[in-house]
Structures are given as structure tokens and as C-alpha cells.
Design a protein around this nucleic acid. Structure first.
Lengths: 206, 206, 206, 206
DNA sequence: CCGTAAACGAGACGGTACGTCGAGTCTTTGA
DNA sequence: TCAAAGACTCGACGTACCGTCTCGTTTACGG
């Protein structure tokens, strides 16, 4: 549940907040972004679609991006309640990473995911506060899964001792994100595989 | 030199274009972004500062981002006329890459560079046309330098045969960009060095 | 009190209207027309002078002319609250008409009245809706005073029975307006007198 | 043929003027006013339609209204070359005037005449220079015909001696124009007749 | 008959105002 | 007493024309 970011003049009473409105706002925001894209989604539009006064949005969120981020977190929270039990660990690190990266490639190629995530990411690039929230709530938890898997591999002797897993993971995630955000080259399974091939050698035991 | 992207309704006659206005617009745009940030820079403001009619901007560019991209390219073109002779090649690939990546880190940490580049990148993330132009005119030429240096290293036997330099370079550039854009961790020289260390092993001969 | 002419897309709620803004707009509009003339008065200028958003003008009026007409009506409403008790009736129709027409001549020769009235009239000539409002709200009530006076004269036997007062009045008002609007000849008291002389014979008993 | 209004900076050489352009501009102006109305007719539009540079218009006319006035005069000049031999004189002044006024009523009720004349008149109401030209070139010559007819009638003893025909004519023309411009009441033949009835008594011998 | 100066078409330019949109604030009203 | 509704100020949008100003390109005259 997103608490408003601290000491604003006249912090509203969160306990009296209308859950009904909150949900309606999330639904409207996600629907509008899906239909019209992020840039053409407006706070006014969200309010109208949600059947809510504009003030009700301004009361609880500082910006359109913040609304959407919370809507996203809400969505992810619902989805993630069951699954998300960590990366697979079959003992074969290369295979496990390829599986995960291929899945990520598919997700990034799916417009339903691509459009709003791209919008939110772009906003975070430019708005440090939002970016921090985005990273802390959405990105970092996912990266932590890589840390866990790589640490396990390190303990199993498949990754060179002394390698920092937090840096190592970026060898996989960084290039993928680079291609996705900047569209320098197409994102394919073959690319994911090759990436694992190259990067894994970099952190493998000598 | 940015030729208008053709096939628009009533393309204006580029030969009659006022070089004076073009320069004034670039100067104003860069100054305003530097002073007020990208979001608070408006086309109206650029026009006023440049002493130019708004229509003169709209006649030649489709958006604020496009203006700024061209202003950037113009700047880069001036700067790059003398230098830009490729990445250093001392024969020591690791050292050369560290040098370059450290320089990149410094640049990315310099607000004069960071603010507008970040803004332009974010815009490109969301606007495919602009992104394509951004990549083609600014990013790809830089990446090509890596390709050249890595190919040379490959021929010298310092990089495993069969490794695709275009993919290999992303092992260096991808993670750096990731940290920069998403601000997940601080960008330091130490990080640049470690990145080279890890990634280089990945593409070194067995 | 000007109710918006209904059946527009999304008629705003008139009960919530800001009386403060309405007054400020009228004041600004009249002041600007007086200072700069009608053509150089702009909606943007009125809004700025009134300390009001442009939208607040566009919300309630369809055009600059409509604003000015309402400003005029408002002014006339204030002025007319006490006076306006009809044309004088001394029993001497010729004298009474000469008095009134001379006063009208003076008014039409006074730039404070001439400039905005002329502008509004010209606009009404070309814009039938505005013209209708102008006539209905400003002109017709004045003409009605003539009807009353002429009817009284008719009952007193000073006007031929069977003469339609609504037409008769135009013998006085028409030529005067003609000279004023088209500036064919100077508007003088002598002219007013002569007009009464000629026209009155036309409707006198045989 | 409209000579430019004297000593402007660099008066152009009228002898070199392109008759072709002049005609094309008139045609375009009249056509556009007919199609879109005066307000939506622009100098730019006239130039484009006439296949003429804007400067060619600005070189010879000071305003849109001036162009249209000249276009009108040109038209009237063509039309008036044969006819316009004065008002009819059958000896029956009332009948003659009714005939003429009825014809005027018909003209004023014809949209082809009404729209542009109305526009030009309105412009003249507000722009004294244009108004003067309008009156001098179009209106006054017509009024002169009334003067002639009334003078003839006066000599024949049908109009009271001492009556100023220039004023008398306004008893007929003024009310008609009033109704037409202000749309206070419909313009009908019956009205024209009644007007003659009333006004003629005013100037008849006692 | 030819060179030259003008008027010409085209249209880019600096401006001004347009009418619209949305942001964020403030006020009224009904549940 | 909160929230819906929505009017408010403000600022920027992108467009339309204004009137001015080059640009070549005709065109017609004067040598």
C-alpha cells in the first residue's frame, strides 16, 4: 500500500481513504495507458474514467507517473503473490540463465508489457524520485533473484570466487536492457543465449 | 546536416533556410535545457530566446526532442571534427578499455552532459522515430569504435575467434548504461575497471 | 443577465460562475476598447487585463464581440436602472423629437460612445447571431420608446390614424443611423431638426 | 482604375503593372468571399487562389477590404457600363420610387449581393478611410440619382420648394438601409411601398 | 536587339493571436 | 466530513495569417 511521500502540507488521513476510488484509479490508469499510450494519458482522463474527482488523485499522488507506478506495483503484487519463488536452479547455471533470459526477451517483446514499462522507465530516467521508487520496488527485487542464483552457483564452484554477484548479474541484464531500451538491435532468443555464453565465461573459474 | 525527413505535407524549401535562425535555435535550446532542465524547456521558450518565430521551429522540426537532438548533433559535429580518431590502441586491450570506460563514467557523471543526454535518451525510449535517429546518429558511431578496437584485438589474438564484436561490446557498454540510466548503483572508476575485468574474460581466448 | 445560449457541447454550470471574473472581464473589455479600439482589443488582452484565464472567457462567450456586447448590456443595465423612463412628452411632438434626436446626435458624435458602438454594430452587421442579440437587447428597447411616444401622439390626433408607428419611427432613426454609420454627411443638430420637419409632415394628419 | 494612395516609400510603377494579376486577384477575392464569407477570406488565400505572390497584393492595396472594394468597383464598372442611366421618370414620383425601392429590396435580399456588400459596409463602418472610398465610389453615385429625380420632381411641382433633395432622399434610403443592416424587420415590397407613402407626404407640397 | 531594372511567383521569416488542452488549485454541493 | 464535480488561473500547445523580406524568374523598356 503506497504511503504518500511524507510531510506535505495537510497530509490527508490515510485511514479514511476510499479503497474503491484507489482501485478505480488504478484500473483507469492502466486501461488508458494501454489504449492511448502513456503520453496521451492524462490525470484528467484518469479521473474522468475512474469516476473520481481530480483532487482525489492529487491528494494521494504527486504525478501521473507516480499513479502509474503504484498501479503497476499493485498489479505486480497480485500477480507475484503466488509465483516468483526465485530463479530456477537445475545445477546447470548456463541453462538456467538462458531459460530466464529467453523468458525476459519474450516479455520485453510483448507490447502489453513493453509499452507501459518503457514509459515508466523513461519517466524514471528523467525523474530521480520516481526512478528510485521504480528501482527499489520493481527492479531491485528481481535483480536480487539473480544475486541469489549466482551466489548459489558460486558456492557450487561454478562461479569464480571473489566475483561480486551484484556486478556479475549486470553482465546479463545490462546488455539486454540496453538493446531493449535503445532498440539498437533486435531482441532474440539467440541473442540471449550468446550473451549467456560470453558473459558466463567472464565469471567462470579459471 | 539534418535534412528534413521528406514526404511530409508541404516540405519547405531547405535551400532558402536561414542558417542564422538555425544556429540561434540550437544555441537557445541548449542553453535553456542547461538552465532549466529538459521538461521546463518549451518550444515557445526556445523561439523567444532565439528571437525566432515559433513557426520557424515547427517548420523544420516535429518536436522539442527533435530540435534538441539536432542541436546535439550539431554540437557533436563541431567537437568531433578534430578528434574522434577511434579508441586508443596500445596493444593492451584491458588498459585501453578501462581508459575509455573511465572517461565515459566521468562524462556520465558530469551534469552538463548528463542532463540533456538523459532527457534525449528518455525521449528516444518512448518515441521510436526519435530513438532511431538518436541511435543512428549519435550512439551507433560511438559503438562502431568499439567494434573496430575489438576486431583489431581479435586479429592480434587477444579476443577469442568467433566472438561477435558487436555483441561483445555490449558486455562493456550495456552494464554501464544500465547503471547510469536506472541509477541502481553509483558509477565509479572502480566499477568500470571491474566491468572490464569480468567481461574481458568472457571473450578472451580459452 | 446573459445566460449562455444553451445547447452547446458541455454547457458549463452557470450557478458556479465566478461573479468576480465576470465583472473583471467586462471592465477590462470596456477599458481596452476605449484605449486601443475594438480591432486592437484581443481576447488574450482582455484575459490578461482582467487577471483571468483565457479559458474563462471562452467558457462563457463565443467571441470577442459577444463579450463586448454583454459588457455593454451590463453597463446599460446599470445606467438604465434609474432613468430611461421613456421619451419626453410635452404635447409638442416636433419639439420632443428634436430634443431626442439632438441628444442622439451628440451621443453619436462622442467618441466614447461612437467607437465601441460602431464596432459592435459592424460586427452585428456581419454576424447574424450577434446582430440579433444586439438588436433585441439594446436597439429594440430604445425603438420601443419611439413607438410609445408616437402612439401617444397618434391618440392625441397629432399623427395620422392608420400610420404604423413602428414604421414611422424609422423615418427619424433610419436617416440618422445612415449618416452615422456611413459618414455620408456630418451629423448636426440642424440636420436632426430638418429631419423631424420633413418626416413629421409625412405622418401628420392631412 | 484604382491609383495607389500616393506617396508611400517607393511607389511602384503603375505602368508596369500586370493586368493579368490584377484581374486574377479580383476574381479570387470575389470567389473566396462568395464561398467562405469575408471573415474567412485571407490575403494569403487570395494570393494562392490567384496564383500570385502575396507581395503583389501588398504592393497595390493596403488591406483585404481595399482589395475587395476594388474588386467590387471593377465588377460594378463592368455591369454599369451599359445601364445606370438614372432613375425612371414617368412623371409619377411615387410610382417611380416604389419601383426603384422594390428593386433595391430584391437586391438586398439576394445573398449574392448581400454577403459581400454587407461585409464591405461593415468594414467601412469601422475603417473610415475605406468607408470614405466606399461611399464616394459606390454609394454616392447612386444617391446622386435620387437627387436628380427629386430635383426634377421639385421642378415639376411635386415636391415642396425649399426641400433639400439630398436630405429628402435619406427618408427613403435611410430606413431601408437600417432594416437591411440591422435586420430589425424583414425587407419586403410592402415595406418599400409604405415607406414611399409616408416619406413622400413629408416632402410633398402643402 | 539586347541589357537592365521592375514587377512578379514563391515562400521563409519574426510576430501576434487564435482556440484548445491539461496542470494543479480552489469552491460548492450532495451523500 | 469527505469526495464528486467542475470552475478557476496559468502556461504551453500547434495553427493561421499578418506584413516584411529575400530569392530567382519573367517581362518590357530604353539605349
Amino acid at each position: 500500500m503506497p504511503e504518500p511521500q511524507a510531510a506535505s502540507p495537510r497530509t490527508p488521513d490515510a485511514t479514511r481513504r476510499s479503497e474503491r476510488s484507489r482501485r478505480a484509479i488504478f484500473d483507469a490508469a492502466l486501461a488508458l495507458v494501454g489504449e492511448a499510450g502513456y503520453a496521451r494519458t492524462t490525470i484528467e482522463g484518469i479521473a474522468a474514467r475512474a469516476g473520481v474527482g481530480k483532487q482525489t488523485i492529487y491528494r494521494w499522488w504527486p504525478s501521473k507517473a507516480a499513479v502509474l507506478l503504484d498501479a503497476f506495483l499493485d498489479l505486480a503484487g497480485q500477480a507475484g503473490e503466488e509465483g516468483a519463488g526465485g530463479l530456477p536452479d537445475t545445477g546447470d547455471l548456463a541453462a538456467d540463465l538462458k531459460l530466464v533470459l529467453r523468458a525476459t526477451v519474450d516479455e520485453l517483446n510483448d507490447p502489453r508489457f513493453d509499452v507501459p514499462t518503457r514509459a515508466l522507465t523513461a519517466e524514471g530516467v528523467v525523474d530521480p524520485d520516481l526512478g528510485a521508487r521504480f528501482v527499489e520496488r520493481l527492479l531491485e527485487p528481481q535483480l536480487q533473484l539473480y544475486v541469489e542464483r549466482l551466489t548459489a552457483a558460486q558456492e557450487a564452484g561454478h562461479v569464480r570466487p571473489g566475483v561480486d554477484p551484484r556486478i556479475a548479474l549486470e553482465l546479463f541484464v545490462g546488455p539486454l536492457t540496453h538493446r531493449w531500451l535503445l532498440r539498437t538491435r533486435p531482441l532474440t532468443h539467440a541473442y540471449a543465449d550468446e550473451l549467456v555464453e560470453y558473459a558466463l565465461h567472464g565469471i567462470a573459474p579459471r
